[in-house]
Simulated scan of single mutants.
Amino acid sequence: MSAIQLTPPAIDPASLGKVAVLFGGTSAERDVSIMSGTGVLKALQDAGVNAFAFDPAQRPLHELQAEGVDRCFIALHGRGGEDGTLQGALELLGVPYTGSGVMASSIAMDKIMTKRIWRFEGLPTPDWRMVSSAEECAQALAVLGAPMIVKPAREGSSIGLTKVTDVAQCAAAYAAAAQHDPEVLCEQFIDGEETTCPVLIVDGVAQALPVIRIQAPDGNYDYNNKYFTDDVRYLCPSGLPADEEAEIQRQVVRAFNTLGCRGWARADVMIRKSDRQPFLLEINTSPGMTSHSLVPMSAQVAGLPYAQLCIHLLASASLDSRR
Results as ranks from 00 to 15, higher is better:
Gly48His: 10
Pro305Phe: 10
Pro13Lys: 06
Thr98Trp: 14
Pro152Arg: 04
Ile117Thr: 08
Arg250Cys: 03
Asp31Gln: 10
Ala315Glu: 10
Val19Phe: 09
Thr285Cys: 02
Asp191Trp: 00
Pro278Met: 13
Gln277Ile: 07
Phe52Ser: 12
Trp118Asn: 05
Tyr227Phe: 15
Pro182Ser: 11
Glu193Met: 10
Phe73Trp: 14
Ser133Asn: 04
Met148Gln: 09
Gln65Lys: 15
Leu86Tyr: 00
Arg262Leu: 00
Gln5Asp: 09
Leu41Lys: 01
Ser27Glu: 03
Met35Thr: 05
Arg116Met: 15
Gln179Gly: 03
Thr114Asn: 06
Leu309Tyr: 08
Ala206Tyr: 10
Gly81Cys: 04
Gln87Ala: 02
Pro241Lys: 07
Ser105Val: 01
Ser33Met: 05
Phe279Ser: 03
Phe120Gln: 14
Asp127Thr: 04
Arg266Trp: 02
Asp231Arg: 06
Ser132Asn: 13
Met148Lys: 07
Ala20Met: 05
Leu22Asn: 06
Gly81Asn: 07
Thr195Gln: 09
Met109Ser: 04
Ala75Ile: 08
Ala47Arg: 13
Thr125Gly: 04
Leu235Phe: 14
Pro278Arg: 14
Ala53Leu: 02
Asp83Met: 09
Pro60Met: 11
Asp191Asn: 13
Glu82Asn: 05
Gly37Pro: 04
Cys186Gly: 11
Arg129Met: 13
Asn50Cys: 01
Glu82Ala: 01
Asp203Asn: 15
Val252His: 06
Ala3Cys: 06
Ala208Thr: 13
Arg30Phe: 02
Ala267Gly: 08
Leu313Trp: 02
Pro9Gly: 12
Asp181Phe: 00
Met297Leu: 14
Val253Ser: 03
Gly84Val: 06
Cys236Gln: 09
Cys72Val: 12
Ile201Phe: 12
Gln65Ser: 13
Ser318Trp: 09
Ser15Gly: 01
Thr85His: 04
Thr162Gln: 12
Pro9Asp: 06
Gly78Glu: 05
Val167Pro: 00
Val232Gly: 01
Ser33Phe: 04
Ala138Lys: 12
Cys137Ser: 08
Pro124Thr: 04
Met297Ile: 13
Leu209Gln: 08
Val40Thr: 07
Leu304Gly: 13
Gly80Phe: 07
Gly263Cys: 09
Ser105Met: 00
Ala14Ser: 15
Met297Asp: 02
Asn224Met: 01
Gln45Phe: 00
Phe256Trp: 12
Glu247Pro: 03
Pro210Gly: 09
Ala66Asn: 12
Asp231Pro: 01
Met148His: 10
Val167Trp: 01
Leu41Gln: 10
Ala255Pro: 10
Ala140Gln: 13
Tyr234Thr: 07
Phe73Arg: 03
Ala168Asp: 14
Phe52Cys: 09
Asp275Ile: 14
Leu123Ser: 11
Val49Phe: 11
